[in-house]
């Protein structure tokens, strides 16, 4: 019969070996599946069909969403009357955008208050689809009013306008806010896209 001490020692060695053998670390960034135990592995296999079914369903619902968005656009905003207004932002050093309001032919059609997250998305290169609506063919005028914080953190309010002609094809306008390093001021403009 082994003495209690030798018993403990051999067990300790075994503990240490087990701990070390399973202690191989894997980063969060790469699935912790290096040393999957058998029971977990079999569970994973069982769940695969469920996972694939959900993947397939997600894909189908994405396709459905695409078709529904297209239907919505064709139905509510046909290209012969469609006007889309986008907004993009430069680095934003001289101007921190709070809100924007759009008037078309002296009528307010859209306004938006920005969250930090939205501003961040704009600063990183995103473009916001600010307004999608319908107008008749012919001459129109758009006025955009920007409010926010200007240089030195002061309240800042500026407007810019554009007269444009709406033809039978969809019209896209981009409101651009840029930093003018020459003037140390923000610059606001409206650009027509073809």
């Amino acid at each position: 019969m082994l003495s209690p001490l030798s018993n403990i020692i051999s067990t300790l060695c075994f503990i240490a070996w087990v701990l070390l053998s399973v202690g191989f670390s894997t980063n969060l960034h790469a699935a912790a599946d290096l040393f999957i135990e058998d029971d977990v592995e079999s569970q994973v296999i069982e769940d695969q069909s469920l996972d694939l079914a959900l993947q397939d369903l997600k894909s189908q619902i994405l396709g459905l969403n695409r078709d529904l968005f297209i239907l919505e656009e064709e139905l509510l905003f046909p290209s012969n009357t469609q006007l889309a207004v986008f907004l993009s932002l430069d680095i934003g050093e001289f101007f921190k955008l709070d809100a924007v309001t759009i008037h078309i032919d002296k009528k307010e059609v859209a306004s938006h208050l920005y969250t930090e997250k939205q501003i961040d998305a704009l600063v990183r290169g995103g473009v916001q689809k600010l307004y999608l609506g319908n107008i008749k063919s012919g001459e129109h005028e758009m006025v955009a009013v920007f409010t926010g914080r200007g240089p030195n953190g002061r309240d800042y309010r500026r407007a810019t306008s554009l007269r444009f002609n709406k033809s039978t094809s969809a019209k896209k306008l981009e409101l651009m806010i840029e930093d003018s390093t020459r003037l140390y001021q923000p610059e606001f403009s409206i650009v027509e896209w073809n």
Binding site: L122, G125, G126, V127, Q128
Partner: peptide, 9 residues
């Protein structure tokens, strides 16, 4: 740009 706007949010 619109894709990126949604993506970054």
């Amino acid at each position: 740009g619109v894709v990126l706007y949604e993506f970054f949010q």
